[in-house]
Design a protein around this nucleic acid. Structure first.
Length: 274
DNA sequence: CGGGTTTGACCGGCGC
DNA sequence: GCGCCGGTCAAACCCG
């Protein structure tokens, strides 16, 4: 059992498209209270990038690579090295059909503070997911202007568009022109992502739970607009607060246990061991 | 010299 | 039970 949703964004320099597909995998025995060891948070990020690995602000150490069956491209395995006992791992593999697409799979929750850049990346994903879950995907006619909502919900991005194109609804974040651009041209060493991340950094002061509730409430507020959303699956997901909360919690896992103590009651509790 | 990468071996899960 | 496959380990190697 599990949930998943998909997002799409144009990354910082406008040359990298990021598609976020988030899935929470919950084994049947989770309900018995052993979820700390049984539940897996998986976050799939598809990024169109020529670099070997998308930069998410975290530090990773490669510990292996494999040739996966059915894909001529090597799959690389990375561990988070920002904390000694950080359980987060990620797999990086290029898409077999389009090798410019980088498929990154994150697993687990960070049990340490994340740098602003990492928080920024996660925040943008979260914001996009909020938009997606809010049911703002347009119908063919468009009950409301989804882009308007998108901009309202993503004040840090100058442009956000919502698409219901097949195979799944997507949220497109054009982060090319961050409001922080007012600060002038950015040096090569600092991407717009980092700058917007600083704007988001205060958000990391929220616990994961608070973030989750944030998403749930915003989702519920928007639900009357869902009547003829093109994706019935998405509607079902958005209509289910539990699923939404699960998704929100999974998303916040990207943000990480930026505050492990305050998020000690995070749904998965994977950081309870350390 | 320390930290990261490479690469072959090993292990466990799963399907037949 | 056996083989396949994905994931991980660890020694060797590389690099700053």
């Amino acid at each position: 059992m599990g949930i998943n949703t998909h997002l799409n964004s144009i990354d910082t320099d406008g040359s990298t498209a990021i598609f976020l597909s988030l899935e929470r995998v919950i084994s049947p025995v989770d309900q018995s209270g052993t979820e700390a060891t049984m539940r897996k948070d998986l976050v799939y990020v598809r990024a169109r990038s020529e670099s070997p690995m998308i930069s998410d602000g975290c530090q990773w150490r490669k510990y292996g690579q494999k040739m996966a069956k059915g894909n001529p491209c090597l799959r690389a395995y990375y561990r988070c090295t920002m904390a000694v006992c950080c359980p987060v791992r990620k797999q990086v593999q290029r898409c077999a059909e389009d090798r410019t697409i980088l498929i990154t799979t994150y697993e687990g929750n960070h049990n340490h503070l994340l740098p602003p850049a990492a928080v920024a990346t996660a925040s943008k994903m979260k914001a996009a997911a909020t938009m997606l879950l809010s049911g703002s995907m347009p119908s063919a006619d468009g009950i409301m202007n989804p882009n308007l909502l998108a901009r309202a919900m993503l004040p840090c991005s100058s442009m956000a568009t919502v698409s219901a194109s097949a195979p799944f609804p997507t949220v497109t974040l054009d982060l090319t022109h961050s409001p922080n651009d007012l600060q002038g041209q950015k040096p090569n060493t600092q991407s717009p992502q980092v700058l917007s991340g600083q704007a988001f950094y205060n958000q990391s002061k929220f616990s994961g739970l608070q973030l989750s509730q944030d998403m749930v409430s915003s989702t519920q507020l928007q639900q009357p607009q869902l009547a003829d959303t093109v994706s019935t699956a998405t509607v079902a997901m958005a209509n289910d607060p539990n699923l939404t909360a699960a998704l929100a919690a999974a998303l916040t896992s990207i943000i990480g246990a930026a505050h492990p103590n305050s998020s000690g009651n995070t749904p998965n509790g994977t950081n309870s061991r350390h």
